[in-house]
Simulated assay, not measured.
Amino acid sequence: MTAAARAHGLFQHLYGIEPVGIWAAPGRVNLIGEHTDYNDGFVLPFALPHRTSVAADVLPEQRWAVTSELTGETVEFTLDAKVDGWAAYVAGVVWVLAEQGHRVPGARLTVASDVPIGSGLSSSASLECAVLTALVDLAGLDIPIADRPRLAQRVENDYVGVPTGILDQSASILCTAGNALFMDCRSLRTEQIPFDLAADGLAILVIDTRAPHQHAGGEYAARRAACEQAAAELGVAALRDAVPADLDRLSDDLLVRRARHAITENQRVLDTIELLRSGRHREIGPLMTASHASLRDDFEVTVPELDVAVTAALTAGAYGARMTGGGFGGCVIALVDADRVDNVADAVAKAFAEHGFAEPAAFKAVPSAGAGPV
Protein backbone atom coordinates (compact mmCIF):
# COMPACT_ATOMS: atom_id res chain seq x y z
CA MET A 1 0.00 0.00 0.00
CA THR A 2 1.37 3.42 -0.94
CA ALA A 3 2.14 6.14 1.60
CA ALA A 4 -0.73 8.17 0.12
CA ALA A 5 -3.18 5.32 0.70
CA ARG A 6 -1.93 4.82 4.24
CA ALA A 7 -2.18 8.54 5.08
CA HIS A 8 -5.71 8.50 3.67
CA GLY A 9 -6.66 5.41 5.67
CA LEU A 10 -5.24 6.87 8.87
CA PHE A 11 -7.22 10.08 8.37
CA GLN A 12 -10.44 8.15 7.83
CA HIS A 13 -9.74 5.99 10.88
CA LEU A 14 -9.11 8.98 13.15
CA TYR A 15 -11.82 11.34 11.96
CA GLY A 16 -14.41 9.20 10.19
CA ILE A 17 -14.53 11.51 7.17
CA GLU A 18 -12.71 12.00 3.89
CA PRO A 19 -9.76 14.43 3.88
CA VAL A 20 -9.99 17.48 1.64
CA GLY A 21 -6.98 16.15 -0.22
CA ILE A 22 -3.71 14.26 -0.17
CA TRP A 23 -0.33 15.76 -1.01
CA ALA A 24 3.07 14.13 -1.34
CA ALA A 25 6.73 15.08 -1.67
CA PRO A 26 9.68 12.82 -2.50
CA GLY A 27 12.97 11.99 -0.90
CA ARG A 28 16.04 12.51 -3.02
CA VAL A 29 19.50 11.31 -3.85
CA ASN A 30 22.21 13.71 -4.90
CA LEU A 31 24.01 12.45 -7.97
CA ILE A 32 26.97 14.72 -7.25
CA GLY A 33 27.64 18.03 -5.49
CA GLU A 34 27.85 17.26 -1.78
CA HIS A 35 28.30 20.01 0.85
CA THR A 36 28.43 22.56 -1.97
CA ASP A 37 24.97 24.05 -1.46
CA TYR A 38 25.85 26.15 1.59
CA ASN A 39 29.01 27.27 -0.21
CA ASP A 40 26.89 28.94 -2.94
CA GLY A 41 27.91 26.15 -5.28
CA PHE A 42 26.32 23.67 -7.65
CA VAL A 43 24.28 20.53 -6.97
CA LEU A 44 22.70 17.79 -9.08
CA PRO A 45 19.99 15.85 -7.19
CA PHE A 46 17.07 13.86 -8.48
CA ALA A 47 13.84 12.89 -6.74
CA LEU A 48 13.12 9.33 -5.64
CA PRO A 49 9.82 7.53 -6.15
CA HIS A 50 9.72 7.17 -2.34
CA ARG A 51 7.38 9.85 -0.96
CA THR A 52 6.00 11.32 2.24
CA SER A 53 2.24 11.81 2.00
CA VAL A 54 -0.06 14.08 3.96
CA ALA A 55 -3.85 13.82 4.13
CA ALA A 56 -5.54 16.92 5.52
CA ASP A 57 -8.67 18.95 6.04
CA VAL A 58 -9.30 22.47 7.35
CA LEU A 59 -10.33 23.46 10.89
CA PRO A 60 -12.39 26.59 11.65
CA GLU A 61 -9.86 27.90 14.17
CA GLN A 62 -6.06 28.34 14.01
CA ARG A 63 -4.91 25.16 15.63
CA TRP A 64 -3.24 22.17 14.11
CA ALA A 65 -3.16 18.44 14.83
CA VAL A 66 -0.75 16.10 13.07
CA THR A 67 -0.64 12.32 13.43
CA SER A 68 2.29 10.17 12.33
CA GLU A 69 1.71 6.66 11.05
CA LEU A 70 5.24 5.78 12.15
CA THR A 71 4.91 6.76 15.82
CA GLY A 72 1.12 6.63 16.22
CA GLU A 73 1.46 9.95 18.04
CA THR A 74 -0.81 12.95 17.55
CA VAL A 75 0.75 16.34 18.27
CA GLU A 76 -1.49 19.39 18.64
CA PHE A 77 -0.19 22.95 18.60
CA THR A 78 -1.06 26.59 18.05
CA LEU A 79 0.89 29.46 16.52
CA ASP A 80 2.36 30.57 19.84
CA ALA A 81 3.67 27.10 20.76
CA LYS A 82 7.22 25.86 20.07
CA VAL A 83 7.12 22.22 18.99
CA ASP A 84 10.01 19.76 19.25
CA GLY A 85 10.68 16.32 17.80
CA TRP A 86 9.35 15.07 14.46
CA ALA A 87 6.33 17.40 14.60
CA ALA A 88 8.68 20.43 14.54
CA TYR A 89 8.96 19.92 10.78
CA VAL A 90 5.20 20.39 10.55
CA ALA A 91 4.88 23.25 13.05
CA GLY A 92 7.81 24.96 11.35
CA VAL A 93 5.88 25.13 8.08
CA VAL A 94 2.96 26.83 9.85
CA TRP A 95 5.42 29.21 11.52
CA VAL A 96 7.27 30.19 8.35
CA LEU A 97 4.06 30.83 6.41
CA ALA A 98 2.68 32.99 9.23
CA GLU A 99 6.01 34.78 9.57
CA GLN A 100 5.79 35.63 5.86
CA GLY A 101 2.43 37.29 6.50
CA HIS A 102 0.15 34.53 5.23
CA ARG A 103 -2.96 33.48 7.12
CA VAL A 104 -2.61 29.75 7.58
CA PRO A 105 -5.85 27.87 8.18
CA GLY A 106 -6.03 25.43 11.05
CA ALA A 107 -5.81 21.85 9.87
CA ARG A 108 -5.81 18.18 10.79
CA LEU A 109 -3.09 16.21 9.06
CA THR A 110 -2.03 12.58 8.92
CA VAL A 111 1.41 11.58 7.69
CA ALA A 112 2.75 8.37 6.17
CA SER A 113 6.07 7.91 4.39
CA ASP A 114 8.00 5.49 2.21
CA VAL A 115 11.23 7.51 2.53
CA PRO A 116 13.66 5.59 4.76
CA ILE A 117 14.36 7.60 7.91
CA GLY A 118 17.95 8.23 8.92
CA SER A 119 19.35 7.08 5.58
CA GLY A 120 20.42 10.40 4.13
CA LEU A 121 17.58 10.36 1.58
CA SER A 122 16.04 13.57 2.93
CA SER A 123 13.06 12.23 4.85
CA SER A 124 12.81 15.47 6.83
CA ALA A 125 12.70 17.66 3.72
CA SER A 126 10.07 15.41 2.15
CA LEU A 127 7.91 15.92 5.26
CA GLU A 128 8.42 19.70 5.23
CA CYS A 129 7.67 19.95 1.54
CA ALA A 130 4.58 17.71 1.64
CA VAL A 131 3.13 19.77 4.50
CA LEU A 132 4.07 23.04 2.80
CA THR A 133 2.38 21.96 -0.43
CA ALA A 134 -0.72 20.87 1.47
CA LEU A 135 -1.07 24.07 3.50
CA VAL A 136 -0.42 26.34 0.51
CA ASP A 137 -3.20 24.59 -1.40
CA LEU A 138 -5.60 24.46 1.57
CA ALA A 139 -5.12 28.19 2.15
CA GLY A 140 -5.20 29.08 -1.54
CA LEU A 141 -1.90 30.94 -1.18
CA ASP A 142 -0.20 32.40 -4.23
CA ILE A 143 3.36 31.28 -3.56
CA PRO A 144 5.32 30.51 -6.74
CA ILE A 145 6.84 27.04 -6.89
CA ALA A 146 10.31 28.55 -7.29
CA ASP A 147 9.96 30.37 -3.94
CA ARG A 148 8.89 27.36 -1.91
CA PRO A 149 12.27 25.64 -1.36
CA ARG A 150 13.58 28.71 0.49
CA LEU A 151 10.57 28.63 2.82
CA ALA A 152 11.09 24.93 3.52
CA GLN A 153 14.79 25.55 4.15
CA ARG A 154 13.87 28.18 6.74
CA VAL A 155 11.81 25.56 8.55
CA GLU A 156 14.95 23.47 8.89
CA ASN A 157 17.34 26.34 9.66
CA ASP A 158 15.30 28.77 11.74
CA TYR A 159 12.69 26.58 13.40
CA VAL A 160 14.21 23.12 13.77
CA GLY A 161 17.74 24.52 14.09
CA VAL A 162 19.64 22.43 11.54
CA PRO A 163 22.00 24.50 9.32
CA THR A 164 21.27 22.70 6.05
CA GLY A 165 21.61 24.23 2.62
CA ILE A 166 18.77 24.40 0.11
CA LEU A 167 19.54 21.24 -1.88
CA ASP A 168 17.09 18.86 -0.21
CA GLN A 169 14.06 21.15 -0.30
CA SER A 170 14.75 22.19 -3.90
CA ALA A 171 14.97 18.58 -5.02
CA SER A 172 11.77 17.63 -3.21
CA ILE A 173 9.79 20.49 -4.75
CA LEU A 174 11.38 21.24 -8.13
CA CYS A 175 12.50 17.89 -9.55
CA THR A 176 10.67 16.43 -12.54
CA ALA A 177 10.36 12.83 -13.69
CA GLY A 178 13.18 11.57 -15.90
CA ASN A 179 15.53 14.44 -15.05
CA ALA A 180 18.20 15.48 -12.59
CA LEU A 181 18.00 19.04 -11.22
CA PHE A 182 21.04 21.20 -11.95
CA MET A 183 20.92 24.05 -9.45
CA ASP A 184 23.10 27.07 -8.83
CA CYS A 185 22.69 27.58 -5.09
CA ARG A 186 23.65 31.26 -5.29
CA SER A 187 21.27 32.45 -7.98
CA LEU A 188 18.82 29.56 -7.40
CA ARG A 189 18.72 29.13 -11.17
CA THR A 190 17.70 25.60 -12.09
CA GLU A 191 17.83 23.47 -15.21
CA GLN A 192 16.29 20.06 -15.79
CA ILE A 193 18.99 17.73 -17.14
CA PRO A 194 17.70 14.63 -18.97
CA PHE A 195 18.82 11.56 -17.05
CA ASP A 196 17.49 8.53 -18.92
CA LEU A 197 19.96 5.87 -17.88
CA ALA A 198 17.71 2.99 -18.93
CA ALA A 199 18.06 4.00 -22.59
CA ASP A 200 21.81 3.42 -22.18
CA GLY A 201 21.39 0.13 -20.34
CA LEU A 202 22.43 1.72 -17.05
CA ALA A 203 20.92 2.20 -13.61
CA ILE A 204 21.61 3.99 -10.35
CA LEU A 205 21.71 1.55 -7.45
CA VAL A 206 21.03 3.03 -4.02
CA ILE A 207 22.62 1.10 -1.16
CA ASP A 208 21.27 1.94 2.28
CA THR A 209 24.14 1.00 4.58
CA ARG A 210 21.85 1.07 7.64
CA ALA A 211 24.60 3.02 9.39
CA PRO A 212 22.64 5.62 11.40
CA HIS A 213 22.63 8.91 9.52
CA GLN A 214 22.82 11.93 11.83
CA HIS A 215 24.02 15.38 10.89
CA ALA A 216 21.78 17.53 13.07
CA GLY A 217 24.56 17.65 15.66
CA GLY A 218 27.91 19.34 15.74
CA GLU A 219 29.70 17.61 12.85
CA TYR A 220 27.60 19.08 10.06
CA ALA A 221 27.72 22.53 11.65
CA ALA A 222 31.49 22.22 12.10
CA ARG A 223 31.99 21.52 8.37
CA ARG A 224 29.89 24.51 7.45
CA ALA A 225 31.75 26.75 9.90
CA ALA A 226 35.12 25.64 8.50
CA CYS A 227 34.00 26.49 4.98
CA GLU A 228 32.83 29.91 6.09
CA GLN A 229 36.14 30.51 7.89
CA ALA A 230 38.10 29.50 4.80
CA ALA A 231 36.06 31.84 2.61
CA ALA A 232 36.62 34.70 5.08
CA GLU A 233 40.39 34.11 5.08
CA LEU A 234 40.39 34.13 1.28
CA GLY A 235 38.30 37.30 1.15
CA VAL A 236 35.52 35.77 -0.93
CA ALA A 237 31.81 35.66 -0.30
CA ALA A 238 31.77 31.86 -0.43
CA LEU A 239 34.03 29.01 -1.52
CA ARG A 240 32.15 28.94 -4.82
CA ASP A 241 34.34 31.98 -5.70
CA ALA A 242 37.65 30.27 -4.85
CA VAL A 243 40.00 28.30 -7.13
CA PRO A 244 42.53 25.58 -6.26
CA ALA A 245 45.44 28.04 -6.34
CA ASP A 246 43.83 29.92 -3.44
CA LEU A 247 44.37 27.00 -1.08
CA ASP A 248 48.01 28.02 -0.49
CA ARG A 249 46.75 31.17 1.22
CA LEU A 250 44.88 29.36 3.98
CA SER A 251 46.39 29.29 7.44
CA ASP A 252 45.48 25.82 8.56
CA ASP A 253 45.69 22.35 6.99
CA LEU A 254 42.18 21.50 8.14
CA LEU A 255 40.78 24.54 6.33
CA VAL A 256 42.80 23.60 3.24
CA ARG A 257 41.20 20.17 3.12
CA ARG A 258 37.68 21.40 3.78
CA ALA A 259 37.99 24.13 1.15
CA ARG A 260 39.64 21.80 -1.37
CA HIS A 261 36.63 19.51 -1.23
CA ALA A 262 34.16 22.35 -1.85
CA ILE A 263 36.22 23.81 -4.70
CA THR A 264 36.86 20.53 -6.50
CA GLU A 265 33.35 19.22 -5.92
CA ASN A 266 31.87 22.25 -7.65
CA GLN A 267 34.01 21.52 -10.68
CA ARG A 268 32.97 17.88 -10.64
CA VAL A 269 29.32 18.94 -10.84
CA LEU A 270 30.02 21.12 -13.87
CA ASP A 271 32.00 18.33 -15.52
CA THR A 272 29.18 15.86 -14.85
CA ILE A 273 26.64 18.22 -16.42
CA GLU A 274 28.68 18.47 -19.61
CA LEU A 275 28.94 14.69 -19.88
CA LEU A 276 25.20 14.21 -19.32
CA ARG A 277 24.32 16.86 -21.89
CA SER A 278 26.32 14.95 -24.47
CA GLY A 279 24.84 11.59 -23.46
CA ARG A 280 28.11 10.20 -22.10
CA HIS A 281 26.52 8.61 -19.05
CA ARG A 282 29.17 6.01 -18.27
CA GLU A 283 31.87 8.67 -18.12
CA ILE A 284 30.39 10.30 -15.04
CA GLY A 285 31.44 7.23 -13.02
CA PRO A 286 35.02 8.37 -12.26
CA LEU A 287 33.70 11.77 -11.16
CA MET A 288 31.37 10.06 -8.69
CA THR A 289 34.24 8.00 -7.29
CA ALA A 290 36.50 11.05 -7.05
CA SER A 291 33.72 12.84 -5.17
CA HIS A 292 33.61 10.02 -2.62
CA ALA A 293 37.37 10.11 -2.14
CA SER A 294 37.20 13.85 -1.50
CA LEU A 295 34.37 13.44 0.99
CA ARG A 296 36.35 10.69 2.72
CA ASP A 297 39.81 12.27 2.81
CA ASP A 298 39.29 16.04 2.70
CA PHE A 299 35.83 16.54 4.19
CA GLU A 300 35.93 13.51 6.49
CA VAL A 301 32.22 12.77 6.49
CA THR A 302 32.26 9.09 5.54
CA VAL A 303 32.12 6.11 7.90
CA PRO A 304 33.48 2.56 7.36
CA GLU A 305 30.16 1.26 6.03
CA LEU A 306 30.08 3.91 3.31
CA ASP A 307 33.68 3.26 2.30
CA VAL A 308 33.22 -0.52 2.21
CA ALA A 309 30.06 -0.16 0.11
CA VAL A 310 31.84 2.04 -2.43
CA THR A 311 34.84 -0.29 -2.69
CA ALA A 312 32.67 -3.39 -3.03
CA ALA A 313 30.48 -1.78 -5.70
CA LEU A 314 33.51 -0.71 -7.74
CA THR A 315 35.11 -4.14 -7.40
CA ALA A 316 31.88 -5.71 -8.63
CA GLY A 317 31.92 -3.62 -11.79
CA ALA A 318 30.23 -0.31 -10.98
CA TYR A 319 31.39 2.55 -13.21
CA GLY A 320 31.42 4.86 -10.21
CA ALA A 321 30.16 5.01 -6.64
CA ARG A 322 29.92 7.60 -3.89
CA MET A 323 28.19 8.41 -0.64
CA THR A 324 25.16 10.65 -1.04
CA GLY A 325 23.70 13.05 1.51
CA GLY A 326 25.33 14.75 4.46
CA GLY A 327 27.46 11.75 5.42
CA PHE A 328 28.21 10.16 8.81
CA GLY A 329 26.11 7.20 7.68
CA GLY A 330 23.30 6.86 5.19
CA CYS A 331 23.48 5.73 1.57
CA VAL A 332 25.83 5.06 -1.31
CA ILE A 333 24.85 5.36 -4.97
CA ALA A 334 26.51 3.35 -7.72
CA LEU A 335 26.33 3.71 -11.51
CA VAL A 336 25.98 0.17 -12.87
CA ASP A 337 24.91 -1.75 -15.93
CA ALA A 338 21.18 -2.41 -15.54
CA ASP A 339 21.68 -6.16 -15.88
CA ARG A 340 24.25 -6.15 -13.06
CA VAL A 341 22.18 -4.40 -10.38
CA ASP A 342 21.67 -7.62 -8.43
CA ASN A 343 25.32 -8.66 -8.77
CA VAL A 344 26.56 -5.36 -7.35
CA ALA A 345 23.99 -5.39 -4.54
CA ASP A 346 24.99 -8.95 -3.64
CA ALA A 347 28.69 -8.03 -3.64
CA VAL A 348 28.05 -5.18 -1.21
CA ALA A 349 25.97 -7.42 1.05
CA LYS A 350 28.76 -10.03 1.07
CA ALA A 351 31.36 -7.38 1.96
CA PHE A 352 29.16 -6.12 4.79
CA ALA A 353 28.80 -9.62 6.18
CA GLU A 354 32.58 -10.07 6.07
CA HIS A 355 33.03 -6.81 8.02
CA GLY A 356 30.35 -7.65 10.58
CA PHE A 357 28.10 -4.76 9.50
CA ALA A 358 24.31 -4.86 9.53
CA GLU A 359 22.79 -6.17 6.31
CA PRO A 360 22.35 -3.32 3.80
CA ALA A 361 19.25 -2.64 1.72
CA ALA A 362 19.43 -1.82 -1.98
CA PHE A 363 17.05 -0.55 -4.64
CA LYS A 364 17.20 0.94 -8.11
CA ALA A 365 16.48 4.67 -8.22
CA VAL A 366 14.39 6.20 -11.00
CA PRO A 367 14.29 10.02 -11.34
CA SER A 368 10.78 11.00 -10.23
CA ALA A 369 8.48 13.99 -9.85
CA GLY A 370 8.56 16.62 -7.11
CA ALA A 371 5.89 17.66 -4.62
CA GLY A 372 2.23 17.97 -5.52
CA PRO A 373 -1.30 16.73 -4.92
CA VAL A 374 -1.95 13.01 -5.24
Rank of each mutant, 00 (worst) to 15 (best):
Y220L: 07
L295A: 01
D339R: 15
P304M: 03
G279F: 01
R340D: 13
I284S: 02
M323S: 01
C331L: 14
G279W: 10
M323I: 13
D342H: 07
G330R: 04
R224G: 09
A225K: 12
E219C: 00
L250W: 09
I263M: 08
G329E: 08
R282P: 08
A259N: 11
V332Y: 10
A231R: 03
F299A: 03
A293T: 05
R282F: 00
G329D: 07
V301N: 00
V336N: 12
L275S: 05
E300M: 07
C331F: 03
E300N: 08
A321K: 06
A237P: 05
H292L: 06
A230H: 02
E274Y: 09
L254N: 15
A312D: 13
V336K: 02
S291P: 04
L270P: 00
D337F: 06
L287V: 02
D252N: 15
R223A: 14
A242K: 11
L239Q: 10
A230V: 08
D241L: 05
F299V: 03
R260P: 10
R224K: 14
R240K: 10
A242P: 09
L287K: 06
T324W: 08
G235V: 14
E233P: 11
G285N: 14
N266L: 03
G326E: 11
C227T: 09
R249A: 15
R223G: 07
S251Y: 07
A313D: 06
V301E: 02
D248S: 14
V301W: 02
A222N: 07
G235C: 12
A245P: 01
N266R: 11
P304Y: 06
A321E: 07
T289S: 14
V236G: 09
L314Y: 03
L255R: 13
S251T: 15
V301P: 10
P286D: 09
G327C: 04
S291V: 08
R257P: 11
A231N: 09
A293S: 01
D342S: 15
I273N: 06
G218H: 15
G235W: 13
D298T: 04
L247G: 14
P244L: 14
A232F: 13
G235M: 11
S294V: 03
A262D: 05
V236P: 14
P286I: 03
A309L: 04
A290N: 09
D342Y: 05
L335G: 11
A231K: 12
A290W: 08
D337N: 15
E305M: 00
I284H: 04
Q267N: 12
V308G: 04
A238E: 12
D297K: 04
Q229L: 15
C331M: 12
A230M: 05
L255M: 01
I284F: 03
L250Q: 11
R277H: 13
S294L: 03
R277Q: 12
D248P: 00
G320V: 11
N266W: 00
V256C: 12
R258V: 02
Q267C: 05
A321C: 09
G317Q: 02
A242D: 08
A293H: 12
D252L: 02
L270W: 00
A238V: 09
R240D: 15
E219N: 02
M288Y: 10
L335W: 15
L254A: 15
I284R: 10
G218W: 07
A316S: 13
T311N: 08
D307H: 05
R322N: 02
G326C: 03
C331I: 05
R224C: 06
T311R: 12
A245K: 08
A259L: 00
